[in-house]
């Protein structure tokens, strides 16, 4: 083990002792890379500098480091086939559902939630809908709640939107507000439908009466036993019968489909119908 690896372990130990955040769930090489990236973006001289500042009680740095270690990777309409099926196959089931609720667990900075919201708006089902995005990372939740993104994200959004098979008259312009020079946001109706909050999926309570749960690229970090526990104690109790669970591409629930009454809609796509 080289010096920086040892220092990373000490940094994680200090974080665990001082603010009870335990990152043992994550693989050490990934944490080492994230700590390295944090040191570079913060302009710190070295691992020693970071460790000493944490030991001396720099709370701001400690908070920022925890946020940097829990950040998730996301973008608008990521994995377009999932959003296509959400639009074409899932939403029509809820065309006449009052109080439609979608819960995005591990929503990071909100791009996924707004992507769903745009499609719900295109189906004219937004008026009675509520989209709830939750994440462990408070900084990301602040970004998601503000709903304001830099203009380079608009290119990503446009490209994702164009890649979907939507009715010819679908207009992205009606869904966003790009009046600012360097940022854009979403129309009032979308912003009012999306709600964000911090939530720890391993500890906090389930929600009720949710029609669609999107839990993508979060379960994959858990052991198979822990995954089953989260499905059993958090996801299924939150879903209405006939609801849907959407997981990430590396999160195949098919082996447990009988156990949990989940039926996969299409081969190779992790969208499941809950037929309890």
């Amino acid at each position: 083990m080289d010096k920086d690896e040892l220092l990373c372990e000490l940094i994680l130990h200090v974080i665990k002792r001082q603010c009870q955040h335990d990152f043992t769930l994550y693989a050490l090489p990934v944490l080492q890379k994230r700590i390295q990236r944090f040191i570079e973006t913060q302009g710190l001289a070295s691992h020693e500098t970071l460790l000493l500042a944490l030991i001396k009680g720099d709370k701001k740095l400690e908070y920022d480091l925890v946020q940097a270690l829990t950040v998730h990777y996301t973008h608008f309409f990521r994995n377009k086939e999932y959003f296509q099926l959400f639009y074409s196959e899932i939403l029509p089931h809820f065309a006449h559902t009052a109080n439609f609720r979608l819960w995005s667990i591990g929503c990071s900075s909100g791009e996924e939630v707004y992507s769903y919201a745009m499609l719900i708006a295109l189906r004219n089902q937004l008026a009675e809908a509520a989209l709830i995005g939750t994440d462990l990372n408070a900084n990301q939740i602040d970004i998601a709640s503000a709903g304001v993104y830099p203009l380079n994200k608009l290119e990503e959004l446009e490209s994702g939107f164009k890649s979907l098979a939507l009715p010819a008259n679908s207009s992205l312009l009606s869904l966003i507000d790009s009046q600012q020079k360097s940022t854009f946001t979403f129309c009032e109706a979308i912003r009012q439908s999306c709600h964000f909050s911090t939530h720890d999926m391993t500890r906090d309570a389930s929600l009720g009466a949710v029609h669609v749960i999107s839990c993508r690229n979060t379960l994959m970090y858990f052991s198979e036993e822990k995954q089953q526990e989260v499905i059993n104690q958090l996801i299924l109790p939150s879903l209405v019968p006939g609801g849907y669970v959407i997981t990430g591409e590396a999160e195949n629930l098919e082996p447990w489909s009988d156990t949990f009454n989940l039926k996969r809609l299409h081969n190779g796509i992790n969208i499941y119908h809950y037929h309890a």
């Binding site: 990934v30 890379k33 998730h72 590396a250």
Partner: peptide, 22 residues
């Protein structure tokens, strides 16, 4: 190209990670 790939269990099992490029 969607995930980073690691080995765990003493190099016997795959573990995928969703993160930005390093």
């Amino acid at each position: 190209g969607r995930y980073h790939v690691l080995l765990d269990n003493d190099g016997q099992r795959f573990r995928l990670y969703d993160d930005e490029p390093f």
